[in-house]
Amino acid sequence: MNEGSEKGKTLLAFLKAFHIDKDQKDVKMLEEPESPYNPEFVAKIKNAEKEIEDGETFLLETDSIWESMK
């Protein structure tokens, strides 16, 4: 955690408000609940997001969708 960043300062202020020391050993992060989604579906979505980030997709203009299919 970067204590100098805005988010870091906000987290420290939150912890101080509840008198929780950031080095306190008995404070644990809760695990995320199990996803209700099919793991294969989640993998497809993550793959699609990566393709978008990598520029492996193209934009299809909806105004000219029929012309592009000719």
Rank of each mutant, 00 (worst) to 15 (best):
G55Y: 01
P39L: 02
H19E: 15
V27A: 13
I52Y: 14
P39R: 05
F41K: 01
G8L: 02
D23P: 00
F58V: 10
N2M: 02
A43G: 03
D63M: 07
K70S: 12
K44H: 06
D63F: 09
L60E: 09
M69D: 08
T57M: 08
N38K: 04
A13H: 04
K22H: 14
G8D: 03
M1S: 13
E49S: 11
T57C: 10
G8T: 01
L15Q: 00
S64A: 12
T62V: 12
F58T: 13
L12A: 04
L59D: 10
Y37H: 14
A48M: 09
F41I: 07
T62N: 11
F14N: 08
M29Q: 13
H19N: 15
A17F: 10
K7P: 00
D23L: 11
L59G: 06
A13W: 00
K50M: 09
T62Q: 12
F18V: 08
E32P: 05
K50W: 07
S35K: 08
S35H: 09
E49L: 15
F14Q: 07
K16L: 04
L12Y: 05
E34P: 05
T57H: 10
P36Q: 07
P36T: 04
H19L: 11
K44P: 03
E61A: 11
N38S: 09
V27E: 06
E51Q: 13
P36Y: 01
E49N: 10
N38Q: 06
E61L: 11
L30K: 15
L30H: 07
E61Y: 12
I45P: 00
I52C: 05
E51R: 13
F58P: 03
A13R: 07
E40W: 00
